[in-house]
Design a protein around this nucleic acid. Sequence first.
RNA 1: GUGGGCGUAGCUCAAAGGUUAGAGCACUGGACUGUGGCUCCAGAUGUUGGGGGUUCAAGUCCCCUCGUCCACCCCA
Length: 422
Amino acid sequence: MKYTSLKGIQDILPPDIYIWQTIELKARELFGVYGFKEIRLPIIEYSDIFIRSIGETTDIVEKEMYAFADKSGRSITMRPEGTAPAVRCYVEHHLYNLPPPQKFFYSGPMFRYERPQRGRFRQFYQIGVEAFGISQPSIDAEIIVMLNNFLERIGLKGLNFELNCIGCEKCRPDYRDALMNFFKHKLLYFCPDCQRRYVSNPLRILDCKVEKCIELRRGSPVVTGYLCNECRSHFNELISILKALKIPYILTPDLVRGLDYYTKTAFEVTSEYLGAQKAVAAGGRYDRLVEDFGGPPTHAIGFAVGMERVVTLLKEVQSRKYPSPTLFIATIGREAELEGLRIAEDIRARGFWVEPNYGGVSLRSQLRKADRIGAEFAFIIGSDELRSGKIKWKELKNGKQGEVEIDNATKVLSNNIESPDP
RNA sequence: GUGGGCGUAGCUCAAAGGUUAGAGCACUGGACUGUGGCUCCAGAUGUUGGGGGUUCAAGUCCCCUCGUCCACCCCA
């Protein structure tokens, strides 16, 4: 194969595309009734936007960014995630001057230079939402409920809704210290990765999968024990709202986030059926980020849904089918073909999908084709029909056929489709 | 970046170092001059991912490379 797409970057074709369209449609509908407005964000940004927000020592920034210099020599990056651009947009357009909350959603491709595996690609799509300007946990609850509804509505079941509070800039250092203290004496027994994490991001030791490390971290400090009063009451209030709304959740004290900007509420929706990359959606609060971008102190929270992962799960439960045309028009001879095209235009104008016959092949193969593409009806037009002014129609699934005046051809479709024969 | 599995027709896969690399599905046509599905017949389709090596002989063995899948790292 001479020309292929890049590694980890794939085309999305029918019939998969219909699943994508359904998901996007339902997102628009549902997010709309919660007051989220669509924004379209650029795919490339100045690199600093990601370096400063995601964190210089994170893997995303250190080794996964699609970064390059443009012709002026400035460093440009293809976005690895959507929150930073959304915050940049919010600040750049002074949207903090509008009455809070300002709620937005967006969708599109993200890029990370990683080794592809199940559920992970170099170009992948997310639908994200961000809500700016509200500090109260009621908005945390709102987006969690909305996410829950969304996943349910597109047909996903059996998901785990994991929830945690990772503290703020006031209390997280305390927890971090406590954790490091706990690990300090047995550090040498941990796996090399964890020893590295101890320096770079000790919280990450909590989700190491190595058996030995799981054993060693038994009895380690729990984040919720170190929360400041504000974080604790925020978290408790969120939980009580979720309880009141009967939203299922799993308290997961070792749930940590890979991006530096998260504060307080963190959540992740996972599925057991996805392999190693099992998060279908994840999000959390980022109460400092707007300020970091030069805006006023502004509370904010959001989440992102991984499209490919949702599609993967949906493909397990949904049969994928190509849609099929309502009508195939079979014609014999040049004159009939022209008449057929005219009729096709009439019927298309009424919103039916019509496939014409494209070449001078036998009636037999034309009807075979009509059958194979799954057309509901076929029209047959030949010299007899042109002479009499009546075309023959046939309903493919039961072989029923008849004749109709050319001018009334559309009625065959509307009559039969509105009241299909048993 | 690290480790492992797999690359043969459009798709799913055969061919244990030995003729001209096959089968099913799909595709095109015919049997049935103007009536689909079922059946039967025929046809088209390959640099066996690429390059090098071993051998009288390589799809098959060896090396390199590329691609893909899975896992690690990390993440949606």
